[in-house]
Design a protein around this nucleic acid. Structure first.
Length: 707
DNA sequence: CCGTACAATGTTTTT
DNA sequence: CATTGTACGG
């Protein structure tokens, strides 16, 4: 095993300073690819090698996976049992603490955590029972309500502020919304429920109101490290301050130019506030990039330079030269998919790049739909991170609701969902049954329901509960019993695409095997959500990654493809009205670009299909338009693999420069597609709006959009 | 009171 | 396009 001194010597001076500053607060500003993870893992190993018990170290990261990986890497460095280091997300930490201290606020240890969908369902339930008087049409949807509420909690704003600035059309409804939110809070408290925000708020409340808890926690965790600090919000920032208040041994690591979670209340200014809370904080900057080649970094720097906000550092590299980023203007999404698939095969077959070292990144999960079909067609295996999570599909939620009731019988939200699935039970009966459950203890309530309602499926459900409650079987066994009850319901409700959905149920079974208690299984499902392709892809060694940029945070690959680099998709059209959101899109693009080590491809379709408008032309993303052309190489639609075309260069035909399928622009008629090459001088072009038109190239000046 | 058939409706990013 | 609300028949 290497000795810790040797390990330290491999670090650059700034990294080493960060590792060795162990007492007192430290703020590390770490640029993309600057060895941040390496620094954190080395510091972990260093602390343990100094004899600090691993269980006294707390590592807060963005996903539990990231925490686990860092801990494993630290273990590989010093071999000591770093395994006992406490690591996870803010939400999982808060959950863990609340299971112990939640009683101070009246919560039992097995409270249920609501995911976003659950919160929305509950808001909807209350909205309907309160009856939004007056404007039924104009009442906010449950999604809107949930996001307003979350903003209030995470950004410390008032309902009035949010409504007047962001949802002025609901100004008249403020009193009703206020009332609804109060009901929502009350309902959760009465039924042992917490939503994501409550986890943070409730733990923070305990830290604030109970100095003895604060001290206990301070004794328990002597060293705190927080990764991705730019993506923490107000509440999380405060939690850090309180948890470190007794010893002040806290290191925050972040990069203001990579903050991409503003929409969820994250505020990169937390980084600048850190020295306010901890005036004695040492500030260390990591500016040398070890990840990307110079051309990739040049593009990244050019993109972020044009930002309105001045960021704290500029990246530099000593790394070798490499190919320039490639921009591919595809005819449409499908042509883009074919290009990506071709290139992936070329890279793996000819250049020997492992599939696991390639990623396709996108702004929104649906941008890769077409590509996914193409990859499946060609038998290229992939995992996709982002988009719908396992828990978010209806059939999984059904099953999970049954499991939740077993853990927390007061979870009437789940009761309600499950009851509505049953044959012969509608909203009305469900309400009456829930009322019975509310008024007496569980056993007699079930007894009463059985007497008053005769629906066979309901009887079966209650028998199942009586059978399983209190037995505490392993999750796998409980799940298989629940599934055999659920099967007829499943087939009735989802008979159309039962097959696809069945795979998810199998994934759920596979997941459950790893857990010893149902409680753990259920909370992990909410706190550490998993994508269905993750479970399936687990076995395969060599597998391509598809990911939203948000989910690609902190990761790197040899080759990166970025899809849909066009206006409206990236930047997203939702962000165009708000300069701050647009800035976030820019940072997001910066994050995407800086994931690549050697090769970067940017894909931009020339036309896209817009639901109501048909096929329309797409503009190249402003993030590329603003940047000097020399920073990337542009390729058009090619029949040949790119390497070959690179060599041949432009030996284009002189007579007829167009071919069928080319996209062209005419000064008067606008944009269109070449339908037919009539002869050496004439083409038929289908113009947007005008329709098919015959053009003489002698007279008409046609500009080609797809070279 | 339940279930179904149909229309409408709006589709980012995530713990 | 898939979910969510509404209208109506059983």
């Amino acid at each position: 095993m290497p000795n810790i001194k040797e390990i330290l010597e491999k670090l650059n001076p700034a990294q080493r300073e960060a590792v060795e500053s162990i007492e007192g607060p430290v703020l590390v500003i770490a640029g993309a690819g600057s060895g941040k993870t390496r620094t954190l893992t080395t510091r972990l190993a260093y602390l343990v090698s100094l004899g600090i018990p691993a269980e006294r170290i707390l590592l807060l990261t963005f996903t539990r996976k990231a925490a686990r990986e860092m801990i494993t890497r630290a273990e590989a460095l010093v071999g000591n049992s770093c395994g006992k280091v406490q690591g996870g997300t803010f939400h999982s930490l808060c959950h863990y603490m609340l299971r112990q201290y939640g009683y101070l606020l009246g919560f039992s240890p097995n409270f249920t955590v609501l995911d976003r969908g659950d919160s929305e369902d509950l808001l909807n339930l209350l909205k309907n029972s309160l009856g939004f008087p007056g404007a039924k049409r104009h009442a906010p949807k449950k999604e809107t309500l949930a996001s307003i509420l979350s903003k209030i909690k995470n950004q410390g704003k008032t309902l009035e502020e949010i409504i007047t600035t962001e949802y002025p059309n609901f100004v008249d409804l403020i009193p009703q919304i206020e009332r609804l939110f109060k009901e929502y809070e009350l309902y959760k408290r009465e039924h042992q429920l917490m939503d994501y925000d409550d986890l943070l708020i409730n733990w923070l409340t305990i830290l604030k109101d109970y100095p003895q808890v604060r001290e206990e926690v301070g004794r328990r965790y002597n060293y705190i490290m927080v990764d991705e600090y730019q993506d923490t919000n107000l509440l999380q920032g405060e939690i850090v301050v309180y948890m470190a208040s007794s010893h002040r041994n806290v290191m925050a690591v972040g990069d203001d130019s990579q903050s991409i979670y503003g929409f969820r209340g994250a505020n990169y200014r937390n980084i600048f506030d850190f020295p306010k809370h901890f005036p004695e904080a040492r500030i260390i900057k990591l500016e040398q990039n070890y990840r990307s080649t110079q051309p990739i970094l040049d593009l990244a720097n050019a993109v972020i330079e044009r930002s309105k906000i001045k960021y704290t550092k500029v990246l530099f590299t000593e790394k070798k030269e490499g190919p320039k980023p490639i921009l591919f203007r595809a005819k449409d999404d499908h042509a883009g998919s074919e290009f990506v698939a071709d290139e992936i095969l070329r890279l793996t077959n000819e250049e020997g790049v492992p599939l696991s070292q390639i990623a396709v990144l996108m702004r929104a999960a649906f941008h890769s739909y077409d590509l996914e079909l193409e990859l499946t067609k060609r038998g290229i295996p992939f995992v996709k991170y982002g988009g719908l999570k396992l828990l978010e599909s209806a059939h999984i939620k059904d099953v999970v609701s049954i499991l939740r009731i077993l853990v927390n019988p007061y979870d009437f939200l789940s009761w309600n969902r499950v009851l509505l699935l049953l044959e012969g039970v509608g909203p009305r009966s469900a309400e009456r049954i829930v009322n019975l459950l509310k008024t007496s203890d569980l056993e007699s309530a079930i007894f009463n329901i059985k007497r008053q309602f005769s629906q066979p499926e309901l009887q079966k459900l209650l028998n199942l509960f009586q059978d399983l409650m209190g037995k505490r079987l392993p999750p796998l066994e409980t799940l298989s019993q629940v599934l055999s009850f659920y099967e007829p319901i499943f087939e009735r409700a989802y008979f159309e695409d039962a097959h696809r959905r069945e795979r998810d149920l199998e994934s759920l079974i596979a997941l459950s095997e790893k857990y010893e208690t149902l409680e753990e299984f259920l909370t992990d499902l909410v706190l550490e959500p998993i994508y269905s392709s993750e479970v399936e892809g687990e076995r395969k060694e060599e597998i391509l990654t598809l990911s939203t940029i948000h989910s690609a945070k902190g990761l790197e690959w040899h080759t990166v493809f970025v899809l849909s680099v066009i206006e409206g998709r990236f930047p997203s059209s939702y962000s165009l009205l708000n300069p701050e959101e647009l800035e976030e899109e820019r940072r997001l693009f910066y994050v995407a670009v800086t994931r690549a080590k050697e090769r970067l491809y940017l894909i931009a379709p020339l036309t896209i299909y817009v639901p109501g408008e048909g096929r329309t032309f797409a503009k190249l993303s402003r993030f590329l338009q603003e940047v000097p052309k020399g920073l990337y190489v542009e390729y058009g639609r090619q029949e040949k693999p790119i390497a070959q075309a690179q060599k041949e260069e432009k030996g284009a035909s002189i007579n007829m420069p167009f071919k069928v399928g080319d996209l062209v622009r005419h000064p008067r008629f606008g944009e269109g597609e070449v339908m037919k090459v009539v002869d050496q001088e004439k083409v038929m072009v289908n113009f947007v709006g005008k329709g098919p038109t015959l053009l003489h190239l002698k007279y008409a000046t046609l500009e080609r959009l797809s070279p």
